[in-house]
């Protein structure tokens, strides 16, 4: 059992507040992704869990044991680094077995474990090579194998795929997901790549300016963003926003159209909808198409509604010309509302 609890963790570097009072529980064997733009504090949080950085305040617990005062090696963790940190002066075998050697395990057990994880990562044939002779992708596999060989309670990964090219990244993404699920370890994975986050995570923690804005399943983060930041960070292209004014109890007016919405006494809200949740219809929002981008699978149209930019994804057979007027009906169950003052979602 390796449940991770992060309690009131804060970190400041001098006057700069990198993390504000983070609280997060990660279940045993869960794959948690920390997602955010650079500088949001996700790597700092991971390094605090690893013990490479000390929190200014707060506690970290793994498997019911407080570990924030322990050195990294006593925390039951293993880590995969962004630049791999595969030792260039050791062979692949000695790299994978590094941690086991440090634990002074007998030779035959080291060999057995190294060979097992090397098999998992498909690098058995590289064991005698040095890392200088490996490609980036192979080095990445060595780094993951080295972590798996420790048979840790928790694997921490700091942007492990960000240095690979796009095709390799896609391949490794799926493979890593499979290997980690099989290893039954709890995993924390830091990335700025939302596709990686969506495709791999059991749960995503979206971070922004040192806070966790939302921690939920990928589909929930996508469908029900807790804040405007999440709505505009996740999704490519992101959610569309339009100002809404009250039009009676539970009714809101958006660009001349009336929609059912939350029943609050706010002076204004923001209407939000994902680009793929719109369809041409007889009644709806009136938009002027500006840019039309055929993307094969679908058609991305950037239009203008009043003064706001608005993107829709339409079927690729739709014929749209720049300057043409479109009437777009949002799928009513996919409409979301945000408070412009707090930027939080309003139900």
């Amino acid at each position: 059992m390796a449940e991770i609890q992060i309690k009131n963790v804060a970190k400041s570097f001098g006057a700069y507040q990198a993390l504000n009072n983070i609280n997060l529980t990660i279940a045993d064997q869960e794959f948690m992704v920390l997602l955010g733009a650079s500088g949001c504090g996700k790597s700092t949080l991971l390094r605090i869990i690893a013990g490479l950085e000390t929190a200014t305040s707060g506690e970290v617990w793994i498997g019911g044991k407080r570990i924030d005062h322990l050195s990294p090696k006593d925390r039951g963790i293993a880590m995969v680094f962004q630049n791999y940190a595969v030792f260039p002066h050791l062979t692949v075998f000695e790299n994978i077995g590094f941690g086991l050697r440090m634990q002074k395990l007998p030779n035959d057990e080291v060999t057995q474990r190294v060979e097992r994880v090397a098999g998992l990562m498909h690098i058995e044939m590289l064991l005698k090579r040095y890392s200088g002779e490996l490609s980036g992708g192979q080095r990445q596999r060595v780094a993951v194998a080295r972590a798996l060989a420790m048979e840790p309670d928790v694997i921490l990964m700091d942007e492990p795929l960000s240095n690979l090219d796009a095709l390799l990244r896609m391949e490794m993404r799926a493979e890593l997901k499979g290997v980690l699920a099989e290893s039954k370890t709890t995993a924390i994975y830091v990335t700025h790549d939302q596709v990686e986050a969506m495709s791999m995570a059991d749960r995503i923690s979206v971070m922004h300016e040192g806070n966790i804005v939302q921690a939920a399943s990928p589909i929930e983060v996508y469908r029900d963003p807790a804040a405007k930041f999440v709505a505009s960070f996740i999704g490519n292209p992101p959610m569309n926003f339009l100002p809404a004014t009250p039009a009676g109890a539970g009714k809101w007016q958006v660009s001349g159209q009336t929609f059912d919405g939350p029943n609050t006494d706010k002076a204004g809200l923001q209407f939000a909808i994902r680009p793929e949740d719109m369809a041409p219809a007889e009644h709806g929002l009136v938009a002027t198409a500006k840019i039309v981008e055929p993307l094969g699978a679908h058609l991305l149209v950037t239009c203008q509604i009043d003064e706001a930019q608005f993107r829709v994804i339409l079927d690729s057979d739709t014929v749209v010309k720049p300057g043409q007027t479109l009437t777009l009906a949002p799928q009513s169950d996919r409409v979301r509302w945000f408070d412009p003052e707090t930027t939080l979602a309003v139900a």
């Binding site: 690893a50 013990g51 490479l52 050195s71 990294p72 090696k73 963790i77 293993a78 880590m79 680094f81 630049n83 940190a85 030792f87 260039p88 002066h89 590094f98 941690g99 440090m102 634990q103 080295r146 420790m150």
Partner: peptide, 29 residues
């Protein structure tokens, strides 16, 4: 010598002395 090697060594359980003999010294050759 990149700092990450020492962080990796820290995580994988090398004491400061081991870090010197297993990383600093060989990489300093």
């Amino acid at each position: 010598i990149p700092k990450e090697y020492y962080e990796a060594a820290d995580v994988f359980g090398a004491s400061k002395w081991k870090q010197f003999t297993r990383i600093t010294f060989p990489m300093l050759r």
